[in-house]
Amino acid sequence: MTSCHIAEEHIQKVAIFGGTHGNELTGVFLVKHWLENGAEIQRTGLEVKPFITNPRAVKKCTRYIDCDLNRIFDLENLGKKMSEDLPYEVRRAQEINHLFGPKDSEDSYDIIFDLHNTTSNMGCTLILEDSRNNFLIQMFHYIKTSLAPLPCYVYLIEHPSLKYATTRSIAKYPVGIEVGPQPQGVLRADILDQMRKMIKHALDFIHHFNEGKEFPPCAIEVYKIIEKVDYPRDENGEIAAIIHPNLQDQDWKPLHPGDPMFLTLDGKTIPLGGDCTVYPVFVNEAAYYEKKEAFAKTTKLTLNAKSIRCCLH
């Protein structure tokens, strides 16, 4: 018999989150649709729960009410004593943790798909938090293969000092899905179709896995975050240069030392320094102006996964 890495157990509980950011409308629209008619997301033997994560922000069509829901799922915020004085999103995070967690427990949901849009030209993107997770690498390989020839990129946010504390991190297997470009507060049919297909293929993978299909060893190309880059700023902290036209919409493309990065209003080009080629992502993302992030630098690498098969009882 072929030796293989056996994944822990079959997958039982899956959640699909929309509206973690209330103005990213593809996930909101799909989740609302699936709450009314969820036939397309159901798979035999699998509990799939669509869920609106930040209903107040969705109602106002804004990213958040008090603070970013997708950055506060750490033990400090989840452990705060519940009171009306807490920011709305912290209270909501505790409610979500109660419903789908608790985080880092045996009772937490197996998989959470968190649906997002970006204003950046990132196409279909899967966000991975753990480079050693054979199950998710296999799932992402399946999704990428199923979507081809449509490109699907994998963004690895594993980093020693950049801690995200994402909404989906309460699950055993957290999956971020990011599709763009799409303006905030807008629905685009092409973007919706791409996100819908990503979810379909992900659920198909889980179904095949649960039925005992063995997935042979595989490898995927990923883009691992190195650092986030702020806009150049003046002495008052105001933005002093904008994304250069040569960099705009060039997510995932190589940016070499000396290539144009920013452009000042008086026409001066600010190039990339250093001696390493990087791959920019979230270029000129609207939501990241407040976070002082013009783009993120990534490096390209390959992740390998062992063969996996479900432990059938």
Rank of each mutant, 00 (worst) to 15 (best):
M139E: 00
R71Q: 14
K306H: 13
V175K: 01
L126V: 04
D190S: 10
Y109V: 13
W34C: 02
V229Y: 03
D266Y: 05
R168M: 15
N134I: 05
V90E: 10
L35S: 10
K197A: 15
K213P: 03
T167H: 10
K49R: 15
L162K: 13
D259E: 08
N54R: 04
L86W: 14
E8K: 11
H256I: 13
G237T: 04
C310D: 05
L126M: 12
H313K: 10
E235R: 08
Q42C: 09
N70E: 09
G22Y: 06
S105P: 15
A148L: 10
F295I: 03
P50G: 05
H208E: 06
L25H: 05
I225W: 10
S161H: 15
S169R: 14
F113M: 14
F215W: 07
D66Q: 14
P102Y: 12
Y231T: 03
T53V: 09
E214D: 10
E9I: 12
N97K: 08
D114R: 04
V58Y: 10
A240Y: 08
L301R: 09
N133A: 07
N133P: 03
D251F: 01
L162Y: 15
G38R: 10
P160E: 10
P181M: 02
N37K: 14
R233T: 11
I112S: 05
K253M: 11
P257Y: 02
R132Q: 12
E238H: 12
K200M: 08
L69F: 10
N121S: 08
Y173F: 11
P160Y: 12
A294I: 03
T44H: 15
L78H: 13
F113H: 01
E285K: 02
C311Y: 08
E89N: 05
C124I: 09
N236A: 12
V154L: 04
V154Y: 02
D193M: 08
G18R: 02
S105A: 08
Q182V: 12
R43H: 05
P183I: 01
I308A: 04
L265T: 08
K228E: 11
D204H: 02
E235Y: 14
G274Y: 03
H207P: 02
D204Y: 00
I239R: 09
K197H: 12
M261H: 00
H116D: 01
K13L: 04
N70D: 08
A294K: 01
D193Q: 10
V58R: 06
